[in-house]
Amino acid sequence: MVHNKIRRINHGYLFVAPFIIGFLLFGLYPVYNTLSLSFTDATLMKVDSNFIGLKNFERLFQDKTFLTAVTNTWELWIMNFIPQLGIAMLLAVWFTDVRLKIKAGGVWRMLFYMPNLLMPAAIAALYFSLFSYYGPVNQFLVRSNLIPEAIDFLRNKEITRAIVVFIQWWMWYGQTTILLMAAMTSISISLYEAAVIDGANSWKMFRYITLPLIKPVMIYILVTSLVGGMQMFDIPMLLTDGRGSPANAILTNNIMMYMRFRSSQGHIGAASTIGVMIFIMTTFVALLIFYLLREKHDDFKGKSG
């Protein structure tokens, strides 16, 4: 028996070994590289670089653009995440509700996921031409007398932000729906049957059965969306001029990082500093989420057998 247990402990290592080897081979160096660059004045156009300690960080904290970028990133993420989760939750509940019997739930879900299949570059190009000054949205709105004259949508801060938020929501709510449905369908029907016998209403069943049981998936969605949101890049980068215009309205952390990196000198030192800051911020918030949503159920999971 003791022998058996040791064997099993060793197996734990074996199972995770490919991951660790893969990480050591491919993942470690880029991470180390980023971290060490953040303390230098390295540029891509120079052969040598100097260690400058925390100077990059000092400069970054004095730069009010960085504050703008951080605020923007949070706003853009939260504004798209709340409706994304809300609508996905609504859809998942409807599609899995045995009483509503929504027809062809799988087909709906499949169609709602479609935007995610498109390349971000294609999406950005499409929305750009839709909302340009001489574009079809203006044509439609003016000709149907909804607005008196054309609006330069993508030179308006609020509208541009709204478009980014909408695209992000549009791209991702389908995936969130799939994940939530996957979690909800695996909840045993007998739990709901028992609840119906006890006279529970829909809301109570959702609150006390569904929600607690889909928690692991919820944590997954929340954390991956947070990480993705903090690194939001493709759409705001490609929608306007790649600099977060108009007036830095959609300048995100990653765009700012990329701008430093792509500047004519290629300031990878200064860019790495932003990368490190994004990382620290994301980690802090993610750990906070884990801490807040942490529960006893972690303990009983392992022992359920």
Binding site: D41, N56, R59, D63, K64, T65, D152, R155, N156, K157, R243, P246, A247, N248, M256, M259, R260, S263, S264, Q265, H267, A270
Partner: peptide, 24 residues
């Protein structure tokens, strides 16, 4: 040009953006 900011704000926004790309 849109009239959402004045000339001084324009120059200061521009300087922020330049600083962003040329830290030195």
């Amino acid at each position: 040009l849109e009239g959402t900011i004045d000339l001084d704000e324009m120059w200061s926004l521009w300087k922020d953006a330049v600083r962003n790309e040329f830290p030195d």
